[in-house]
Design a protein around this nucleic acid. Structure first.
Length: 199
DNA sequence: TGAAGGATCAACT
DNA sequence: GTTGATCCTTCAG
């Protein structure tokens, strides 16, 4: 059921950013399985000054240069991790940032990880309504950097599967929290979904 | 060798 | 609306 390698290989980064909306991100962790529908993404392309791979390949951004369908996890502001899906051919540093999820599975486990009460409306929304939050709720760590979304390795499996739902209305805007390339329309989210981080 | 700054969040006023 | 928490990477000297 998981999306095959070809899904990541055969589409460019901007197309993938849009097509990942409505798909479901799954983590089969030792504590239990958590999953959520992707409702917000951002694209980071080569030649884009906001992209970590813009300057050159370094130890930090090396995963972005891996094959499509690889995970890129990195620390931001010293506190939080962000989760990216690597796209583009090998040796091309492009990726899609997953910015928000709508929880579907393992909600009580997410609540424990986030120290929130999912039985309240605010608590539920707070589980995954931002890139740093969803990484905590899903139990994803820096150990998942470089892991494949299609070929499980030693770390607990993370993958994305299609999820049938009615056609969504998509909104295209500029990206959040960056200074370079701030005018580029590379952010995509599901219109009206309350788990989107900001609208 | 050092210092600046960043794809964030939560708790303040 | 503003600010503090806190750490790793990068670039300059």
């Amino acid at each position: 059921m998981k999306l095959p390698l070809e899904f990541y290989q055969e589409q460019d980064t901007l197309t993938l950013s849009q097509r990942l909306l409505g798909c479901e991100l799954v983590h089969e962790s030792p504590e239990g399985t958590t999953a959520g529908i992707i409702v917000e993404t951002e694209a980071y392309l080569t030649g884009d000054p906001a992209c970590h791979a813009y300057r050159r390949r370094t130890a930090r951004n090396a995963a972005m240069f891996g094959p499509a369908g690889t995970l890129y996890v990195y620390l931001i502001y010293g506190f939080y991790y962000c989760l990216n899906v690597v796209t583009g051919p090998e040796d091309v540093g492009e990726a899609v940032l997953i910015r928000a999820l709508e929880p579907t599975e393992g909600i009580s486990l997410m609540g424990e990880r986030r120290n929130l009460d999912p039985s309240t409306s605010a608590g539920l929304r707070g589980l995954t309504s931002g890139p740093g939050k969803l990484v905590i709720a899903m139990g994803i760590t820096k150990e998942h950097n470089f892991q494949s979304l299609t070929t499980p390795d030693a770390v607990s499996p993370v993958y994305i599967r299609p999820r049938r739902r009615t056609a969504i209305e998509m909104v295209t805007t500029t990206r959040i929290g960056i200074t370079q390339g701030a005018d580029l329309p590379y952010r995509f989210y599901e219109k009206g979904n309350r788990f989107v981080s900001k609208w």
